[in-house]
């Protein structure tokens, strides 16, 4: 994680949980995920000097050069409700590197979902610079990207999961996972099945969502989010509807995927989850705070 000074302080204060942020990350995450690699933990190179060195390198480097997936500077999002102006985000600076696990922590209304929506190109910033997967989305000299272009960047680079799962009730687990491929005409049921195996649901492939527990439904959603081989997974309160044990199991799955190279940005108000990630960004009223 390389972000503004506040987040950097977070890293330095938690050296024990800093995993190899950038040093080994010229890798293709999803091929590793599907190969069921279990050796990723050995990649840990956890010196804060390494992080500091990377930070100094990245300061002026192009966003794409060092595996920066998201670069946000002075990010602002303003909504209007009648005559009222709501600054949902008010000058946020964040960088997310390949293979990094970042937690956006804050209460309801702090700006977590707004941040994810901007990173995921589901919404556009009102002001500030935003680069996602090497594509300049907004900024001083950035031309307006049409919706279709944003859709394409999103599909090629980003997977989403949500608190409500958003699975289609009339489709089987396999069909739900396969769904994002349909628009590109690249339906791949075998791959969907492999991903369901990967998330521990090999025995539930033909089940519909109502026949699955909450934790299993979220695993289907995770498999669906991975089907397009994203570099970045955005998760909005993904364990908010789950009991503690199921939450921990889902979080363990995120940990495995992250070790295999997938960058994850997870929004939550759950401080227990936040304790277990590389970097925590505390949001309050649209700003990063200590």
């Amino acid at each position: 994680m390389v972000s503004n000074n506040t987040a950097v302080m977070d890293i330095k204060e938690k050296p024990g949980i800093i995993r190899s942020i950038v040093c080994d990350r010229a890798r293709s995450p999803l091929s590793r995920i599907l190969s069921l690699s279990k050796d990723a933990a050995t990649h840990s190179s956890t010196s804060s000097e390494c992080v500091a060195s990377v930070m100094s390198q990245t300061k002026d480097a192009p966003a794409s050069a060092l595996g920066v997936l998201v670069k946000a500077e002075g990010l602002v999002k303003v909504y209007r409700r009648g005559a009222e102006e709501i600054r949902a985000l008010d000058g946020v600076n964040v960088r997310v590197q390949q293979g990094e696990f970042v937690c956006l922590l804050g209460h309801s209304g702090a700006g977590k979902t707004t941040t994810l929506n901007l990173f995921g190109l589901m919404d556009r910033p009102s002001d500030g610079e935003l680069t996602v997967a090497g594509h300049a989305i907004s900024g001083a000299d950035v031309s307006f990207l049409p919706e279709a272009k944003l859709d394409m960047i999103r599909r090629e680079n980003i997977g989403f999961i949500f608190q409500q799962f958003y699975l289609m009730p009339t489709l089987s687990a396999t069909e739900n996972v396969d769904m994002p491929l349909l628009w590109s005409g690249k339906s791949d049921v075998e791959r969907s099945r492999a991903l369901l195996e990967r998330v521990g649901l090999g025995h539930r492939m033909t089940h519909r969502p109502a026949e699955l527990s909450g934790g299993e439904q979220q695993r289907v959603a995770v498999a669906r989010a991975l089907i397009n081989e994203p570099k970045l997974l955005l998760a909005d309160e993904p364990t908010g509807n789950l009991d503690t044990r199921t939450r921990d199991a889902i979080f363990d799955l995120f940990g495995e995927l992250n070790k295999e190279g997938l960058a994850i940005v997870l929004a939550t108000h759950d401080t227990e989850i936040a304790r277990r990630v590389d970097t925590v960004i505390h949001l309050q009223e649209g700003r990063i705070v200590d």
């Binding site: 999103r154 949500f162 409500q164």
Partner: peptide
């Protein structure tokens, strides 16, 4: 055809 209280639209 089915519809539900929670719509179940795919957000992305």
């Amino acid at each position: 055809g089915f519809i539900f209280q929670l719509f179940y639209l795919i957000p992305t």
